[in-house]
């Protein structure tokens, strides 16, 4: 009952915010601030903030509980491998949604054959796990990739990324891809190329030499579907496109901070696993076997 009420309340709020304002863009804000300030101010600011983040990391290191409590949402996924048929529709949906070039795929579907001949293989779709302790974020020399304070989504600031690819080596899950600037021959020219990618609500035209070419790219949980409050809306299709398109309903997406949420319930009631737990990354994507 309470859930229903809450949902109604949310819906009115969403329709308001979608109608009135354009969605806030965190990255863009960052850029604007940078543009206004003097170079020296950026310099001291950037360096200061890195020092601060260092002390912050030390303070919140055990369990990372501090980071969790101050965060409004903790978006993540629960992927039920028994429901996955390995159709790779999520890969296609992601490609179409984010207009990723060849060699870049924010999600993949791998299959693992079982020893028993009568079993279908285990299929796993694997987006970015948006880890609680993302090793990719720590190694970025310019803090171009970071974990958003409000919802824990790990993003890349395309305007700051220098393309050193250290984060690709540091990610234990192969979730990061470098944009080499290649195009599909089919879309080299024609209407598809003219449609900009909605990533980060930046609607960039992917032109030669300019970002995101030469940057590292990754899954964003389709954060461009969020409203001003940072919420998704499943009913109206404002939902990560891989989860939206999944034919077997294997991908559950939601907010782990909300105990009523489907994903929170699933990891509570079922026996979820996460990949490479031993590395201490604490992924926000769980698998049900």
């Amino acid at each position: 009952m309470t859930q229903q009420k809450k949902k109604d309340h949310q819906e009115t709020e969403i329709s308001d915010s979608v109608a009135i304002k354009t969605r806030r863009d965190f990255l863009k804000n960052l850029k604007d601030v940078g543009a206004c300030a003097l170079v020296t101010a950026i310099a001291s600011g950037g360096i200061m903030s890195s020092f601060l983040s260092m002390t912050d990391a030390v303070a919140s290191a055990p369990g990372g509980s501090r980071a969790l409590t101050k965060r409004k949402y903790r978006y993540g996924m629960v992927i039920d491998t028994r429901r996955c048929v390995g159709c790779k529709a999520c890969m296609v949906a992601c490609k179409v949604e984010n207009k990723t070039p060849p060699g870049v795929s924010y999600t993949i579907v791998s299959s693992h054959a079982l020893d028993r001949p009568d079993e279908k293989p285990v299929f796993t779709t694997k987006p970015c796990f948006h880890c609680e302790h993302p090793p990719c974020v720590d190694v970025c020399p310019v803090s171009a990739t970071f974990k958003r304070d409000q919802d824990g989504i790990v993003v890349v600031d395309y305007d700051r990324c220098i393309g050193c690819r250290y984060c690709i080596t540091a990610c234990p899950y192969g979730a990061r891809y470098f944009d080499f600037g290649e195009n599909y021959t089919m879309t080299e020219s024609g209407p598809f190329k003219k449609i900009p990618s909605p990533e980060y609500n930046q609607f960039r035209k992917r032109e030669e030499g300019s970002s995101p070419i030469g940057n590292v790219r990754k899954c964003t949980f389709c954060l461009h579907f969020q409203d001003a409050e940072g919420r998704y809306d499943k009913e109206s299709g404002r939902w990560p496109s891989c989860a939206k398109t999944c034919t077997g309903h294997a991908i559950f997406f939601g907010d782990f901070n909300d105990p009523e949420n489907e994903v929170a319930r699933l990891i509570r009631e079922r026996q979820p696993i996460r990949l490479k737990e031993e590395l201490g990354t604490q992924p926000n994507v769980y698998y049900l076997l």
Binding site: V39, I42, A43, G46, I47, S50, F51, S53, M54, A57, D138, V139, C140, P141, V142, S143, A144, R160, C161, I162, G163, C164, R165, Y166, F178, D179, S211, I213, G214, N215, V216
Partner: peptide, 19 residues
């Protein structure tokens, strides 16, 4: 080797000392 050679200066200004 950098994806954006023209941004190399950014490492001096936005240095992330965790990296």
């Amino acid at each position: 080797d950098l994806g954006h050679m023209e941004r190399a200066w950014k490492v001096m200004i936005f240095a992330n000392f965790k990296s």
